[in-house]
């Protein structure tokens, strides 16, 4: 990696606001989702978007890819998909009489895994291995993925026939889970009245190239989380374990994820320290898929998590 030799450039906060603004051009009124997705990237995590079709999941992913200038691939997951369709395979080359590795779509910088729950667990776990290890093993050879490497996976929570929902242990690999939701009436109107978003997409400029993104990640990781904030985070974690509403509490990894995301969010807000507001902003996306409500047996929806967290004292 020759890039690590030269110091990473400092990125100003204006650049980041610019990113959010640019993406906002194609996604009306989805500022919050854009910021969450961006902070997930800054925290070096993968993102799961759970929503109905047509709400802009793909648009968000490709817009992010464009403004960051990352190499972008999209894979539509299907039930007959095999791991090799994702990771690639070795092909016999008649000319050289040798096997040549044909890299799969996973060899990119930003992978959109559409409807991840449609594929078989085997394929899912191949992807999840790539996400966790940031490398792929094919025919006994491990191949490093490019840096940075993001996965944005989507899943449709409603038509569950013929799907393989991700087990909790695998959901944990995603740093955040968000859902876009319907746009507000005004934004809806703007979407209807405006031009085709696909054309607008072409106008997006890469304002945050990969090098700068890596620098941002590094800067975000250095954002200060004071004792007061860590105490609050601990109270939250403790509450998930003791208050009996959840089947099981948050793991230490989940707690770390919360702090990472809060740092990234604070960085996006232009601060070099975390406040409980940052924690609360990322709390629902980070904890939502890691908690299962005892009563309903379902994963905690974002609103439920927010409601629950409003009972945990911040200042004390």
């Amino acid at each position: 990696m020759d890039s690590s030799a030269e110091p990473l450039p400092q990125v100003s906060i204006e650049t980041l606001t610019d990113v959010v603004e640019q993406v906002g051009k194609v996604l009306y009124g989805k500022q919050q989702s854009v910021k969450l997705a961006l902070s997930c990237m800054l925290a070096r995590g993968h993102l799961l978007i759970e929503d109905l079709p047509g709400l802009g999941k793909t648009t968000l992913a490709s817009a992010l890819a464009r403004v960051t200038g990352l190499e972008y691939r999209r894979v539509q997951f299907t039930s007959d998909m095999l791991p090799a369709d994702l990771t690639g395979f070795s092909l016999y080359d008649k000319g050289s009489g040798d096997f040549r590795f044909q890299p799969g779509p996973v060899f990119c910088q930003l992978l959109l895994a559409d409807e991840i729950n449609r594929s078989s667990p085997k394929t899912q776990s191949a992807l999840l291995e790539a996400m966790e290890e940031r490398q792929v093993s094919v025919d006994g050879v491990s191949r490093q993925l490019e840096q940075p490497f993001f996965v944005i996976a989507t899943q449709n929570p409603f038509s569950l026939a013929g799907t393989f929902s991700l087990p909790e242990s695998q959901l944990d690999r995603f740093l955040m889970r968000i859902s876009m939701g319907y746009p507000e009436a005004g934004d809806e109107r703007a979407i209807l009245a405006g031009e085709d978003p696909r054309q607008q997409m072409d106008q997006l400029q890469p304002v945050l190239p990969a090098q700068q993104l890596l620098a941002c990640q590094q800067q975000a990781a250095q954002v200060k989380a004071s004792d007061a904030v860590l105490n609050y985070v601990q109270r939250l974690i403790e509450a998930t374990r003791t208050d009996g509403q959840f089947v099981h509490g948050i793991s230490p990894r989940g707690g770390m994820a919360l702090v990472q995301c809060a740092r990234a969010w604070a960085f996006l807000e232009g601060r070099d320290y975390v406040t409980p507001d940052d924690v609360q902003a990322v709390l629902a996306p980070v904890f939502g898929h890691r908690l299962v409500f005892r009563q309903s047996g379902a994963q905690a929806s974002l609103d439920l998590v927010r409601d629950w967290a409003s009972g945990i004292p911040v200042l004390s």
Binding site: T275, D277, G311, I312, V314, L315, S316
Partner: peptide, 24 residues
């Protein structure tokens, strides 16, 4: 000091447990 602050603040507005400093 934080305790005193909250005491004084809750005399003027209602402070929920989940309220952050900025919201208060």
């Amino acid at each position: 000091m934080m305790r005193d602050y909250l005491k004084l603040a809750s005399r003027r507005v209602s402070v929920e447990p989940g309220d952050t400093l900025s919201r208060v």
